[in-house]
Nucleic acid binder design. Structure first.
Length: 735
DNA sequence: GTCGTCCCGGGTTCC
DNA sequence: CCGGGACGAC
């Protein structure tokens, strides 16, 4: 076999070689699922499948790019013919081919969150609803219904927000239709509708000989239905996923798509990949122990034949600053003692808000780092402004774009003028740009001579820019002209002394991105094509990515699919991680947090460092935080704490009102002294006497006394109505 | 039209 | 605490 099957274990090989018919690959973290998918595709191609009839769906563009890269190594240039992409990019491509069947013209544009929000904000204003209703809240309802593939207007309204959402929704839909635009969910829904059409649907479902879906636990209902339809012609469907890594249920993912796959496809072959190649024994044991607490899992047990490795280092810190300083010093220690590079290391946290203090310490310690996440390049104000110009130039009906840029940079077209243009648009049934043109020509007498001239020159500007599009200029050229001729660049130079240079750089980058897109697409390059890329390819991290040897900082969510030799998991505190906001089903929330912990832990190859702070400042409020329950889930033989003199760890109560000084900072380098296993001294902090706990049968009770530590600790608990019981700690949970 | 001030909200995030 | 959006004053 040409693709080194000998490198694969028996299960992996079985998945790769599985012939026709549905297959479900339950791949644990670090079990080599990417290898399985790529090898399977390579195998299909070698067996004669036409690459252009193969569809592989991933969840991020990054994953798609990596898959393509690996495939090129396996099958060479044939990989380019394959359909590899996200659900959204795949659907956008299909939708463009059949736009007329979906009531769109071929050059439709895609609304991102920002566009959606602006539309809804405006509609809320028009509807005059209470200002307690936020566009975000309304959009959440709209998106939730769309994710589930349900018609919002037919769902029962459970509260006032639902009620508003139901009124907004038809207007929102009409607005998008008028602008020849779709939102992200529409991309999927409209293709789903195409697939349900009698003739076209059938031919589309025969288009692909094989469909493969990665991260299947992340699919929502609509995506699941899409997959079923696309694979209907052949039932050659291969889905790969891990229910334990389902961390996106809050955005509509339904892990039961994975869990119940074999119910919908009874003939499916199920293959489990349980051997982990990534992590050390201790790391894997910790991950297994945490996730074992979740009920309703696909039964699987990850194992490794790697050594136990180093125990997980656990550090208790005074506050979040001390934690950040500890992390920085540990990074330096690991570099010195274990020859780790900065690039080997990642710091993971539950929320972005935690990154700032970490950044400060890293900067103070002169440790290079990069942060993944935050505002993406294409969402930045200046970039968005210019791309909205492009959208309006291409599509005169793009009212949302018109509203955004008509006075950016300011050109004397204020609210009054704009209101008159809007009014004229409504009465004449015109788009805003058409209405502006009409006003400039003197149609609406309401405009004063000054305003009229200003509107006129804006319309002329748009016309002349539009002429560059008709002359088939490159997209990068059009953008460059927009930046120049609208006076946008000039205004930045003059007025924004602080952020101006940075923003100008971003605009140059935008032009460069367009140029790259032009080169890639060749004569096919169109503004619509570029706008699609802007909407679908969030390449914010491309720019900052990989440059030099730097520590990576990111949220756990962003870390999924990645691995590092050393992983720091910071902020392991109740209320931080698990976060548990409690606005939904607490049980489900906790289970998802546990999966998140599982994902975080399994990112580590060799070394894992846990840290938590006893007090943490959030929103200018200092709070005491208990250590995360996840710490206590980890078997204690996997954990190590740094031995420190007791004097160094003063009780918080003694110094609550004292200012922090350098004395508080532990100056000991983290790795220049031996590490001791957690000792048995002191009270277990999780279930101290007096703690309130819940038992499945006896309900809520209070701990009277206890012996031992961790999950095996024996507790004497007083339950009202049941009396005193002796119960092992693992059977109760903290209230 | 622009600037200052007040008020509110503040998870995770891809497309 | 911090930023963004809304609103009032020039």
């Amino acid at each position: 076999m040409q693709h080194a099957l000998s490198d694969l274990n028996l299960e992996q090989r079985a998945a790769v070689l599985h012939g026709d018919g549905p297959i479900l690959v339950l791949a644990g973290a670090g079990s080599g699922k990417t290898r399985v998918i790529t090898h399977r595709i390579a195998r299909l191609i070698d067996d004669g499948a036409s690459p252009r009839e193969l569809l592989a769906v991933t969840f991020t563009n990054k994953a798609a790019g990596e898959m393509r890269e690996r495939l090129i190594q396996l099958v060479g240039d044939r990989a380019w013919e394959m359909w590899i992409g996200t659900f959204h990019s795949t659907c956008a491509r299909l939708l463009r081919q059949h736009a007329e069947h979906a009531g769109l013209s071929r050059d439709f544009t895609i609304f991102d969150d920002d566009d959606q929000k602006r539309v809804v904000t405006q509609l809320l204003k028009e509807l005059n609803v209470s200002d307690r209703i936020t566009p975000r809240g309304v959009l959440a309802r709209i998106d939730r219904a769309k994710n589930a593939g349900e018609d919002l207007t037919r769902l029962p309204a459970r509260d006032y927000v639902d009620d508003v959402a139901r009124r907004v929704y038809p207007l929102y839909t009409a607005r998008l239709a008028r602008e020849n635009a779709v939102d992200f969910n529409d991309l999927l829904l409209k293709v789903l509708r195409l697939l349900e059409l009698p003739g076209l649907g059938e031919s589309l479902s025969r288009r692909f000989s094989h469909v493969l879906v990665d991260e299947f636990q992340d699919t929502n209902r609509v995506q699941y239905r899409l997959v079923r339809h696309l694979a209907r012609g052949t039932s050659n469907l291969c889905v790969v996923g891990d229910d334990d890594q389902s961390i996106y249920s809050w955005r509509g993912a339904e892990p039961r798509n994975l869990l119940e796959f074999d119910r919908d496809f009874p003939s499916a072959r199920v293959i489990k990949l349980e051997r982990n190649y990534r992590s050390s024994g201790h790391v894997l044991a910790a991950a297994n122990a945490v996730i074992a607490k979740n009920p309703c899992r696909h039964d699987k047990a990850l194992w490794t034949d790697r050594d136990a490795g180093e125990p997980i280092l656990l550090e208790e810190c005074h506050d979040e600053r001390a934690e950040a300083e500890f992390v920085a010093s540990a990074i330096q220690g690991l570099r010195a003692v274990e020859n780790r590079t900065h690039g080997d290391m990642a710091i993971l946290y539950r929320t972005h808000a935690q990154s700032r203090v970490l950044e400060e310490s890293l900067r103070a310690a002169r440790i290079p780092y990069r942060i993944i996440g935050g505002v993406s390049f294409f969402q930045r104000r200046e970039v968005k402004d210019i791309t909205e110009y492009l959208r309006l130039i291409v599509n005169p009906h793009a009212d949302t774009a018109f509203e955004r840029i008509v006075n950016v940079p300011t050109r004397g077209i204020g609210d009054t003028t704009l209101d008159r243009i809007r009014g004229h648009a409504v009465t004449g049934g015109l788009s805003l740009l058409e209405a502006a043109r009409s006003c400039a020509a003197g149609a609406a007498s309401a405009l004063g001579p000054q305003a009229r001239r200003k509107v006129e020159s804006f319309v002329e500007l748009m016309d002349s820019l539009r002429a560059t599009v008709s002359s088939r200029a490159r997209v990068s050229e059009i953008l460059a002209q927009v930046i120049e001729r609208t006076g946008y660049a000039e205004r930045l130079e003059i007025e924004d002394k602080i952020d101006g240079p940075e923003r100008l750089r971003n605009l140059h980058e935008l032009v460069a991105a367009a140029a790259a897109c032009d080169d890639e697409a060749g004569p096919e390059a169109t503004p619509a094509g570029f706008l699609e890329r802007v909407a679908l390819v969030a390449s914010a991290d491309d720019k900052d990515g990989r440059q030099g040897d730097a520590v990576t900082l990111m949220t756990i969510h962003a870390a999924k699919g990645l691995e590092f030799s050393v992983v720091f998991l910071a902020g392991l505190e109740e209320g931080v991680f698990p976060a548990l906001r409690g606005d939904g089903d607490l049980d489900h929330e906790l289970q998802e947090e546990r999966r998140l912990a599982y994902v975080a832990i399994t990112r580590a190859r060799d070394r894992l460092v846990f840290s938590h702070a006893r007090t943490r400042r959030t929103y200018d409020e200092i709070r005491r935080n208990e250590p995360s329950r996840f710490i206590f889930d980890v078997p204690k033989e996997c954990l190590a704490v740094r031995a420190r003199p007791a004097a160094r760890r003063p009780d918080l109560a003694d110094r609550r009102h004292e200012r922090r000084s350098m004395d508080d900072v532990d100056q000991t380098p983290a790795f220049e002294e031996p590490i001791y296993i957690l000792d048995d001294e002191g009270e277990d902090p999780v279930f101290p006497p007096g703690a309130r706990v819940r038992h499945k049968i006896f309900g809520i009770g209070q701990v009277q006394e206890g012996s031992g530590r961790g999950p095996d600790r024996k507790l004497t608990i007083q339950f009202p109505g049941h009396g005193k019981k002796t119960i092992v700690a693992r059977f109760v949970e903290k209230v």
